[in-house]
């Protein structure tokens, strides 16, 4: 495993830890999109189906279990925890899952490598992950008061796939040369969606101002 991949995974892990920390410490999920969190549960469930079928490494299995467990835990907090759920921005989190899930599934049926159950779901998970942040970004645009933890959570979540892009370039040149269009293009689109957010996040950090996204 190269440094970019490890850094990407750690950034991803850190973003989740940060979100759980925010929820547990402040008993609040204000500014967090339940739609995005539910999409992540779908992403991980469809991608990690191979968890009990193919063994890669202890690291790999552990991370999959952590991502599955924490994503479901976050959704549970937001939907069912008696204090946390009351802080959820129900009225502003208006993006429909359906408009992302359906097109991604149809695209996975059309564009894939092998027409097998596992492969279609794996492809679907990559397409869906690339756009899963959209409800969260829409919610942030509507929020007048984005707290630091939420801003940093989204930043780390975006940075993770960006680091994977470097990992893919590195692997392309150091391991056998094979083009992997589906993950590469999905990852590129995923990172590109964050571009605007990155710009405003870094600017607010440099100027020590509160993060605010233009509507």
């Amino acid at each position: 495993m190269n440094a970019f991949r490890l850094a990407g995974d750690m950034t991803h892990l850190l973003s989740i830890i940060l979100l759980l920390l925010k929820i547990r410490a402040t008993k609040s999920c204000a500014g967090i999109s339940l739609k995005t969190q539910e999409l992540y549960v779908i992403v991980f469930m469809s991608r990690y189906l191979d968890l009990f079928r193919t063994y890669y490494s202890l690291y790999n299995s552990l991370m999959k279990i952590i991502f599955l467990g924490t994503s479901m835990c976050i959704v549970w907090y937001m939907r069912s925890h008696k204090v946390v759920r009351q802080t959820y921005n129900n009225d502003e989190d208006t993006f429909r899952h359906f408009f992302l899930v359906l097109p991604c599934f149809v695209l996975a049926l059309l564009v894939h490598r092998n027409f097998t159950f596992i492969e279609i779901l794996w492809t679907f998970s990559l397409y869906l992950e690339s756009v899963a942040i959209l409800p969260q970004l829409v919610l942030l645009q509507k929020s007048s008061n984005i707290d630091n933890l939420t801003g940093t959570y989204v930043f780390l979540l975006g940075a993770y796939r960006g680091l994977y892009l470097f990992n893919w370039v590195y692997r392309f040149f150091t391991e056998n040369h094979r083009v992997r269009w589906i993950p590469w293009l999905s990852g590129l689109i995923q990172t590109a969606i964050y571009t605007d957010f990155f710009y405003y996040y870094i600017r607010s950090w440099k100027n020590r101002e509160k993060l605010k996204l233009p509507a």
Binding site: R5, D9, T54, Y56, S57, N60, M63, H177, R178, P183
Partner: peptide
Amino acid sequence: NPTHKPKDEL
């Protein structure tokens, strides 16, 4: 001939 890489990423 390049082989298909296993899905060892997350």
